[in-house]
């Protein structure tokens, strides 16, 4: 009899505490929410709206005619669209996987050395800080089939006999683009993983050491599980970025040879601003978002089951 009011009082107190916390939470969310909503809400809704309309530009601005999913119907029937979907998926999956593995190796290396940390950090950030178009122009210059330094070095080292036109055949152009991308964006992965590593307490490692775990066991049982949030984060946002790849093919190949390296973002830009078909162009943009979210979900669930499997 006595305990019941006490219990309910403590529940009530906990609830009111939780309410205070919740309200504080909303207050802390507010500034970000306002800025994001003010800037992105209208453009995104408008873009989805455009994808459901036939858009013409007139002197009065955009004129819409509702067509439902017709623009998406055009996409589904277009070989050009599917080609760029497959290219983009293939490109994103390969580059992100390679970047995650390389990024992990480099982050662990930086984390484990005593010296060179600052230098490594500065060097790591150079590719990431370069303007994307400029880094593409740099690779274009390096890959040039007539005076490029890559051919020169490889010939000097007798790896190749004659100059190779790196950007001239579908296979080598895709690989060349991937190399340029991996060079530029692996640092992104490294920084996320490195800051994740910094958050892991030394005590875990000491405990593992006392338990007699070897280095590999320590990595799989301590580092990897504790880093899984950072790995997922790096993977997720790299997938997002990779699906938007534009500058590299734009500068290096303009989508060529033929249309071998035409990414979704390039096709979207072409349809929007080259061909001035705003409805179909917006439909490409919206489809990209849906596609990326699907890939992200696949990545997250695959990643989750992998981590669970390892730590169980």
């Amino acid at each position: 009899m006595q305990t019941v009011p006490a219990q309910s009082a403590s529940i009530a107190r906990r609830q009111s505490l939780e309410k205070t916390d919740r309200n504080a939470g909303y207050r802390m969310l507010l500034p970000a929410a306002i800025v994001i909503a003010a800037v992105t809400l209208f453009p995104i809704v408008y873009s989805i709206f455009m994808s459901l309309n036939n858009i013409s530009l007139t002197t009065n601005g955009f004129t819409e005619q509702f067509v439902g999913l017709a623009n998406y119907g055009i996409l589904v029937k277009s070989g050009e669209f599917w080609h760029s979907v497959w290219f983009t998926v293939y490109y994103a999956v390969v580059t992100v996987l390679v970047e995650l593995v390389l990024g992990m190796l480099i982050a662990l290396a930086i984390n484990n050395v005593e010296r060179l940390k600052n230098v490594s950090l500065v060097i790591m950030l150079i590719p990431w800080s370069l303007i994307t178009v400029v880094s593409a122009q740099m690779w274009d210059y390096i890959y040039n089939g007539v005076y490029g330094v890559l051919n020169y070095l490889l010939q000097a080292l007798h790896v190749i006999g004659a100059p190779v036109t790196w950007l001239g055949s579908p296979t080598s152009a895709v690989i060349a683009m991937m190399v340029a991308d991996i060079w530029k964006t692996t640092p992104f992965v490294v920084i996320i993983l490195l800051s994740g590593l910094q958050m892991i307490s030394q005590e875990y490692y000491e405990a593992a050491y006392i338990d007699g775990a070897n280095r590999w066991q320590t990595f799989w049982n301590v580092t990897f599980p504790l880093l899984r949030g950072s790995i997922a984060l790096a993977g997720l946002f790299r997938i997002l970025q990779a699906f938007g790849v534009f500058d590299l093919p734009f500068v290096l190949t303009s989508g060529g040879p033929g249309t071998a390296t035409e990414s979704l973002a390039m096709l979207g830009e072409q349809v929007l601003f080259g061909r001035l078909h705003f409805g179909t162009g917006s439909a490409i943009a919206v489809s990209t978002v849906i596609l990326v979210l699907a890939v992200c979900l696949v990545f997250l669930s695959a990643f989750k089951s992998m981590v669970k499997g390892e730590t169980a």
Partner: peptide
């Protein structure tokens, strides 16, 4: 824009030997 693209992408594929 599309007519031109039809020309240059396909001609380029032939120049590259992939078509």
């Amino acid at each position: 824009a599309q007519i031109s693209q039809a020309i240059y992408t396909n001609v380029n594929a032939a120049l590259a030997g992939s078509d």
